[in-house]
Computed example of a mutant assay.
Amino acid sequence: MASTARKVAAVADDRARSEAEAYRQGQDRPLGGYVVVMAVFTSVVTAVAGIAAATRRPLPRLSVKELVLLTVATHKLSRTITKDAVTSPLRVPFATYAGTAGPSEVMEEPRKESSLRHSFGELLTCPFCLDLWIATGFAIGLVFAPRVTRLVTGTFTALAGADFLQLAYAAAQRAAE
C-alpha cells in the first residue's frame, strides 16, 4: 500500500514539474514560491474569518465614501511599501536596487536566489501585487478595530491627496518658469 502511494506521489510530482516547465517556457518564474505566498495569504484569511465567526464579529457595511477612502488608502500604503525610498530597508532581503523612479521612489528587482525570495520580492516591489494584501488588511481591521482602521485609512488618503497637490504645485511652478 505504501509503495503504491509513493508511486502515485512520484507520478503526480513528475506531472507537476512538467506542467510547470511547460508554463515557464524557459523563463524564470518562481511557481513554488507563488504557492507559498498564496498559502500564507489563504491561511491568514481563513484564520481571521474563523476568529471573526467564533467571536461573532459583525461584518461592516461600507458606504461609497468609505469604499473610496479604502481605495485611495490602499493605493497609497501599497505604493509607500513597494516604492518609497525610506521603506527600502523592508525590501532589502527580497529585492535589489535598480535605480530611481518617480518623486521619492525607487525601482527594485526581486532577488532570485530562491523561489520563495523571488516571490516575496515580486510582492514587495509591485504595488499592484501588494494591493490585495493591503485591502485585505484594511478589511480585517474594519472587523476587529474599525476606529483605528478608519484613522489609518483617513491618514493614508490624506497623504495621497497631499502627494497629488505636491505634484500639481511642481507642475504649476514649471509652467510658470
Rank of each mutant, 00 (worst) to 15 (best):
G50K: 06
G50E: 08
E66H: 04
K76E: 15
T74N: 05
P60H: 04
P58T: 04
R57W: 00
R79C: 10
V68Y: 06
K65N: 11
T55A: 13
G50P: 07
R79Q: 06
T82C: 15
V72K: 01
A52V: 02
T74M: 08
R56I: 04
R79K: 14
S63Y: 02
G50R: 15
V64E: 10
A54L: 13
I51M: 13
P60E: 01
S63K: 00
L62Q: 00
H75D: 09
L70A: 10
A52Y: 04
L69E: 13
R56D: 09
T71D: 02
P60R: 01
I81H: 05
G50W: 11
A54V: 10
A52Q: 09
R79V: 15
I81C: 05
T80D: 14
I51Q: 11
K76A: 12
T74Y: 11
T55N: 14
S78N: 04
I81Q: 07
A73M: 12
T71C: 04
I81G: 02
G50N: 13
T80E: 14
I51R: 11
L62K: 02
L67Q: 07
L77T: 00
R56Y: 11
I51T: 12
S63F: 00
A53V: 12
L62M: 12
A52W: 06
T74C: 08
T74D: 11
L77H: 01
P58G: 04
R61N: 02
A52K: 10
K76N: 08
T71W: 01
L59Y: 06
T74H: 12
K65W: 07
T80H: 09
H75K: 02
A52I: 04
R79P: 02
V72M: 09
L59S: 13
V68K: 05
S63C: 00
P58K: 00
R61W: 01
T80R: 13
